[in-house]
Amino acid sequence: MIDDPVATAGLVAREVRTGSRDGAPTRIAIARRTYRTDQADLWSAITDAERIPRWFLPISGELEIGGRYQLEGNAGGVVERCDEPESFAVTWEYGGQVSWLEVRLTEADDGTTLELLHEAHVPPEMWDQFGPGAVGVGWDLGLMGLGLHVDSGAPVDREAGLAFPTTPAGVAFVQEAAAGWADAAIGDGDDPTAAHAAAERTVAFYTGAE
């Protein structure tokens, strides 16, 4: 799918922040990547129900404020805010848990920068086990698919995408992404040894090496 997995993973800038919602602590995983297209096209790619499946997952529901959406085999939620073509916010509901997703687009010299913020109440034992890579690596893979679609205009092969993390290139990509999320967690105050151990477990989870 990609010629240089390490370089592709390096296109994403990662950050972790500590926050709070409803009086309870949260962790926020933030990913930023610049795409070689204009803001209108990138907005279409991430909000048009016909284009989203070309790089991510089939989606159903009402993609409007207050509407509910559902990604096939994955999360669903409510569209809380939409400011076209700059940003939107949705709840991210999966496995009985609710978290919050915000996506922002800004013009850049060489295209359009996408910033994704995923905020969640994370049980300490889950964070200790996997760190931010549990959700972050998944978004890295999604942002890679978005890049392939934007660059080519063609749909990403879904079966190849699902199998990618188990290929040699995919393993290299996941390792680089997980290490980046570990560094981001350390930047937010996590213990370096624990963060890198969590990254190794994340790699094993995504690549099937457990």
Rank of each mutant, 00 (worst) to 15 (best):
14 R>Q: 08
15 E>A: 04
16 V>L: 09
17 R>P: 02
18 T>F: 02
19 G>Q: 01
20 S>F: 01
20 S>P: 00
21 R>S: 08
21 R>F: 05
22 D>K: 09
23 G>A: 08
24 A>C: 05
24 A>Y: 00
24 A>V: 13
26 T>I: 06
28 I>A: 00
29 A>P: 00
30 I>N: 00
30 I>G: 03
32 R>A: 11
33 R>W: 00
35 Y>C: 03
35 Y>G: 04
35 Y>Q: 04
37 T>C: 15
38 D>Y: 09
39 Q>T: 15
40 A>L: 03
40 A>E: 10
40 A>R: 09
41 D>N: 10
41 D>I: 06
42 L>I: 10
43 W>T: 05
43 W>F: 12
47 T>C: 01
47 T>W: 00
48 D>R: 10
50 E>L: 07
50 E>Y: 04
50 E>P: 00
52 I>Y: 03
52 I>S: 08
53 P>Y: 06
54 R>K: 13
55 W>E: 09
56 F>H: 13
56 F>G: 01
57 L>F: 06
57 L>A: 13
58 P>Q: 10
59 I>Y: 05
60 S>Y: 01
60 S>D: 12
61 G>N: 11
61 G>F: 06
62 E>F: 02
64 E>D: 14
66 G>C: 09
71 L>N: 06
72 E>C: 06
72 E>V: 12
73 G>M: 11
74 N>T: 02
74 N>D: 14
75 A>I: 10
75 A>S: 12
80 E>I: 13
81 R>L: 11
82 C>K: 15
83 D>C: 12
83 D>E: 14
83 D>L: 11
84 E>H: 12
84 E>P: 07
86 E>R: 15
86 E>V: 13
86 E>P: 00
87 S>Y: 12
90 V>M: 10
90 V>W: 03
91 T>V: 10
92 W>N: 02
93 E>P: 00
94 Y>W: 13
94 Y>T: 03
95 G>E: 15
96 G>P: 01
96 G>D: 02
96 G>R: 09
97 Q>L: 03
98 V>I: 13
101 L>S: 04
103 V>Y: 05
104 R>Y: 12
104 R>A: 14
104 R>F: 08
105 L>Y: 08
105 L>G: 08
106 T>R: 14
108 A>G: 12
109 D>F: 04
110 D>E: 15
110 D>W: 10
110 D>P: 06
111 G>P: 05
111 G>N: 03
114 L>R: 07
115 E>C: 14
116 L>E: 05
116 L>G: 05
118 H>Q: 04
120 A>H: 09
120 A>V: 02
121 H>N: 11
122 V>P: 01
122 V>N: 07
122 V>E: 07
123 P>S: 12
125 E>Q: 15
125 E>G: 06
125 E>M: 11
128 D>W: 01
131 G>M: 05
131 G>T: 11
133 G>N: 06
134 A>I: 04
134 A>L: 15
134 A>E: 07
135 V>S: 15
136 G>C: 11
137 V>D: 07
138 G>M: 07
138 G>V: 10
139 W>C: 08
140 D>H: 08
